[in-house]
Write a protein that binds this DNA or RNA. Sequence first.
RNA 1: GGAGGGGUACCCAAGCGGCCAAAGGGGGCAGACUGUAAAUCUGUUGGCAGACGCCUUCGCUGGUUCGAAUCCAGCCCUCUCCA
Length: 368
Amino acid sequence: MAGLAYDVFLEQGNSRLGKMKTPHGEFNTPVFMPVGTQATVKSVLPSDVWDTGSRIILSNAYHLFIRPGPDTIRAAGGLHPFMNWPGAVLTDSGGFQIMSLGHMVSISDEQAVFRSHVDGSLIRFSPEDSIRAQIAFGADIIMCLDQCIKHPASFDVAKEAMDRTILWACRAREVDLPSTQSLFGIVQGSVYPELRRHCAIELSSMDFPGYAIGGLSVGESKKEFYDILHYTTQYLPENKPRYLMGVGHPLDLVEGVMAGIDMFDCVLPTRNARHGRAFTFRGPVNLKNASFSQDYLPIEEGCDCKACRGFSRSYIRHLFAARESLSWTLLSIHNIRFFQRFMDRVRDCVARGTLASFRAETAEFYPV
RNA sequence: GGAGGGGUACCCAAGCGGCCAAAGGGGGCAGACUGUAAAUCUGUUGGCAGACGCCUUCGCUGGUUCGAAUCCAGCCCUCUCCA
């Protein structure tokens, strides 16, 4: 079976429209991928995720490596049948978790050593381990293990992590992959342009089928974020997909597309949903607020999602007040659908050459 | 009828002479959330005021004291046990 095929069919400034084909279906880019860390987009059935228009989701090698473990998923036939998701899957390598979980014991060029957040056991995780686990999971797109660092970081710390990220990418590239799986490299380098540039050029020379920008939107200023984003993207191959990891806010998605990004993932639609916050084209709305107690309109008028077609703000607010899990489900469906409609709009604007005005509109409702 | 326990803010519950507009929960109100250890975290919750502060509040009514949610007396209401 063929692996990944990516084709840019329209360019507008740095922005582009493309089509990506995977062993589990195709989709238009720029694309938004909902996050399903533990082989589930939290509180939403796969069929409902599909109905939001999502065709690729993200899952996580670190979490699945620890639980249930590669053997269980391999024996199930891979992630797709295991979680009953018909679309494409991208697995993140675990680099972000090794940083964010904070039980790091040591990190060296050889491997990361840390304690499991589940049972405290000592785990050694090399770049090869990450790839082997992701092979077991069978995701269509897999990621190199990278070294993420917290912001702010000194130049020296950032450089060491970037060098290690390149080294690990080299080693990951050496692992034989099934033809159905494609490995992306990840650019690190914190907020330092010369590190970003160096990393992007080095990885590009390894000829990955796609490239990600990691370690952004981790606390740096919006200006630093956008500057590094635009700066880095220009050093990535034009004919390969570019993936901005973990981003983001609606305005960041537009900015990313303007910089030439093709893929995004973010927990915002699902996490915020579980906390009562709805995304709409007129800005965010907190459905837990008392003002919605007798508001019988849908979450967003004109939205075609399953939640908006059958349920009112009043009802969903009630579900939150009563702590019923259906509240998370309905609002997650709406928010994911919002992100997909938002990306529909972004792609349409790229096609029409009106993304700049859409950016201004977005900035009005989702200010920095 | 007798013995004992208790009545504190929206609810539960600490406090038992001044540092008390009153701990801690819950609930309420609001905010945060960017490759998800997130069903999490933060703020706020007597009234008025921008603030110093002022006013009202610990069952009720009186009293002691410079000062009372805290001590005393009477009353009301509750709970447990005995008859």
